[in-house]
Measured scan of single mutants.
Amino acid sequence: LKGVVVAGGVLAGAVAVASFFLRNKRR
């Protein structure tokens, strides 16, 4: 169960970083 929580956190972080980079590329 702990691994699932960690994986979810990593996935959420990756999505946040990806969206951040996409926003920067638009400018």
Rank of each mutant, 00 (worst) to 15 (best):
L1Q: 00
R26D: 08
L22M: 07
L11W: 09
F20A: 07
V4F: 08
A14L: 13
G8C: 13
G8E: 04
L1M: 04
L22K: 04
V5I: 10
F21Y: 11
V10E: 01
G9R: 06
A12T: 13
A18F: 07
A18I: 14
F20T: 03
L11R: 01
R23V: 05
V10I: 08
A7H: 12
F21I: 08
A16W: 10
K2T: 05
R27V: 12
A14R: 04
V15M: 15
A7P: 03
V17Y: 10
K2D: 01
S19C: 14
A12N: 03
G3L: 14
V4I: 06
R26Q: 09
L22I: 10
G8V: 07
A12H: 04
A18D: 00
G13Y: 02
A12Q: 05
G3R: 15
A14W: 09
V15G: 01
G3Q: 12
G13M: 11
A7I: 15
K25L: 13
R26S: 10
G9K: 08
A7G: 12
V4Y: 14
V15A: 10
L11A: 03
V4S: 08
V17S: 01
R23P: 01
L11C: 06
G3K: 14
A12Y: 15
L1F: 12
G13V: 07
L1A: 08
A14H: 05
R27S: 13
G13R: 10
V6E: 04
N24P: 03
R26T: 15
A18H: 03
V5R: 09
V17H: 01
A16H: 06
K2G: 07
A18L: 11
A18G: 04
G3A: 09
F21A: 05
G13S: 05
F20V: 11
G9E: 05
R27G: 14
V17F: 07
F20P: 00
G3E: 07
A12R: 07
V15K: 04
K25F: 15
A16K: 06
V10C: 09
R27P: 12
G9D: 04
G13H: 15
A14D: 00
F21G: 01
K25Q: 14
A14T: 07
A16Q: 05
F21N: 00
G3H: 12
S19E: 10
S19Q: 09
A16F: 09
K2H: 07
G8P: 03
G13A: 08
V5D: 01
L11I: 05
L11F: 10
R27Q: 12
A7E: 02
L1V: 05
R26G: 12
L22F: 15
V10M: 13
G13C: 08
V17W: 06
L11G: 01
R26Y: 13
S19M: 14
V17K: 02
A18K: 01
K2E: 01
